[in-house]
Amino acid sequence: MSMNLEREKATLPLSESADAKSPILPKILLGITIVLILTAIYLTFMYADIEKTMGVVQKIFYFHVGSAATAFTAFFVTFIFSILYLVKRKRIFDTYASVSAEIGLIFTTLVLTTGPIWAKSAWNTWWVWEPRLTTTLILWFIYMAYMMIRQMDGVWDKKARLCAVFGIIGFTDVPIVFFAIRWWQTKFHPIVFGNGVSQKGGGIADNMLVALIVSIFALLSLYTYLLNRGVEFENMKIKVDQYKEKLREDLEN
């Protein structure tokens, strides 16, 4: 009997290493995130100029672009962890990939909701088939599909494998989608960066740029914090499941 239990222990490696890390990290992340977000809010509303033609609504721009950058980063992280999973087959990689995709999806949704608000005030229409916005829409569909694969029934390693494959395919698609849509429709979006500092040419003032960069970093650190928490939560769930199964088996024998 004791032999038995030992063997079971050997085959059910509870992933201790993952959350045995310092519990300080999430707190530090949370601190940084809060500070950055507060700074970003201050810079956005107090420091940066009010844009000439659009007025206050333009403030949404910082959040819009920040969310887009964060979503894109999140999907890139999913892509990297998908490759890592296929090579190493460690559950932790799959957890990171899946949590990151989920957060990315949330940020994509934010981009898609703030986009129309921007569009309404800038071009007086709720939706424009503008390359970046359309690419984001397609991204949203791709990662919704990714979530559908996760909803599949079956053992976790099958789902993890298929999700990883789709995570790779989906992300490879992104630049091509963007390129295609850009060719297809290039009427609307202001080319924010690039030549022309003059406000009218769609350029960006220095103080605006600072606000934008801080906003991006604030959202990125929020993403990191969420990722850390999400992965911890998933690990906890996995662990509970393992204990449950172990308990059931002990009762059986």
């Binding site: 559908m148 395919i169 989906g170």
Partner: peptide, 12 residues
């Protein structure tokens, strides 16, 4: 599931 996977990926 297939259309949901296929259409966005083939959009380009």
């Amino acid at each position: 599931l297939l259309p949901l996977l296929l259409f966005p990926v083939t959009s380009p």
